[in-house]
């Protein structure tokens, strides 16, 4: 409640006290406040309700249902639904492929976070200089463009690029006098190939976020640091980076979540509708992919639900840990 309202209320109750001396001032005020509170809340929830309804129906209910079925034996077509307690989780944890998928997801995320953050920061620093140039907008658009392309369509192009016989990737390696790679056909290079596609597709978004962050670093601070005799590297480390830390933190969180959830590009590049996704030899089977396959290929929805729940807990934990770390290193103005 605003201060103004409060003051108006006090004035009002003072007037009432004069008229009806039997009623105590504070009781009056409290009742008036409670009624006003109720009205405020009703209006607020009324206005929120359409958006809230969409959220509840399409997000919270399915999410809650997912938690629910992870404790049951449940199928889309089967009529029998039986409570199995923690049975799904027990089977999950006893399953080596699940642990393998977790490790694969971890590997993927651990590479993607620093790669995304550093590359995006680097590109945005270069682009920042270009922003003031005449064609700055063109460069920004060029960097952002991949992000607005459909993942599945462009991933198919990347499959062609990584083709061991006549793909662009090996052509470039050959020109650089480097040995050709098997890429998607090998367990060692399949996941890195997917990483390159993901980086290409997602960098634009992070670059734009960093550019916004850089634009918020006051020009005077950099100028004052120059007058203070600091070299470029020192200005970057001691002035720009600390002021950019909230942006960096946001990018890291976003990259973490997006990496754990990465699915479309992995599915498309390693098999797609022809089957074999997650291969070769499960080398690209991440947690998200395994959830999909368990549910829709192996028709075991409750096991997939349990898996998704574990994935959710992991992402939540990671975010909490990152938040905790960030409180020590991120500077909020």
């Amino acid at each position: 409640m605003s201060l103004l309202q409060e003051r108006a209320e006090l004035a009002g109750s003072a007037r009432q006290r004069r008229e009806r001396p039997t009623m105590t001032r504070s009781a009056q005020a409290r009742r008036a406040r409670r009624i006003r509170h109720l009205k405020d809340h009703l209006v607020a929830y009324g206005l929120l309700s359409p958006a809230l309804a969409v959220f509840v129906v399409f997000f919270y209910v399915p999410a809650a249902y997912l938690v629910y079925i992870s404790f049951f034996h449940w199928g889309v077509l089967s009529s029998s639904t039986s409570f199995v307690g923690l049975e799904n989780f027990r089977r999950l944890f006893a399953q080596p492929l699940f642990w393998h998928a977790l490790a694969t997801s971890g590997y993927y995320t651990l590479v993607m976070i620093p790669a995304t953050t550093l590359l995006a920061l680097g590109i945005s620093l270069v682009l920042k200089e270009a922003v003031t140039a005449r064609r700055g907008g063109v460069w920004r658009a060029a960097v952002f463009l991949p992000h607005v392309t459909p993942v599945v369509a462009t991933s198919i192009i990347w499959v062609w690029i990584f083709n061991p016989q006549f793909g662009l990737a090996n052509f470039v390696l050959e020109k650089l006098h480097l040995p050709a790679l098997g890429w998607l056909d090998t367990t060692q290079w399949a996941l890195p190939a997917v990483m390159i596609d993901s980086l290409w597709h997602s960098l634009g978004l992070y670059v734009i976020i960093f550019l916004a962050g850089l634009a918020n670093v006051p020009r005077e601070l950099v100028e004052v640091a120059r007058l203070d005799g600091a070299r470029r590297s020192r200005i970057f480390r001691r002035v720009i980076l600390p002021l950019l830390s909230p942006t960096t933190f946001f990018v890291v969180i976003l990259a973490t979540v997006n990496s754990w959830q990465a699915f479309s590009q992995i599915y498309t590049m390693t098999g797609g509708p022809h089957g074999g996704a997650g291969g070769p030899a499960f080398s690209t089977t991440t947690d998200a992919l395994l959830v999909y396959q368990t549910a829709f290929s192996f028709d075991h929805f409750s096991l997939a639900a349990a898996m998704a729940l574990v994935l959710f807990v992991i992402i939540l934990l990671l975010t909490v840990i990152q938040k905790w770390i960030s409180n020590k290193v991120v500077f909020y103005r």
Binding site: E220, L221, V224, R238, V239, L243, F331, R333
Partner: peptide
């Protein structure tokens, strides 16, 4: 004019 102190 706006001092430009390093806020962090």
């Amino acid at each position: 004019q706006n001092y430009a102190l390093y806020p962090h």
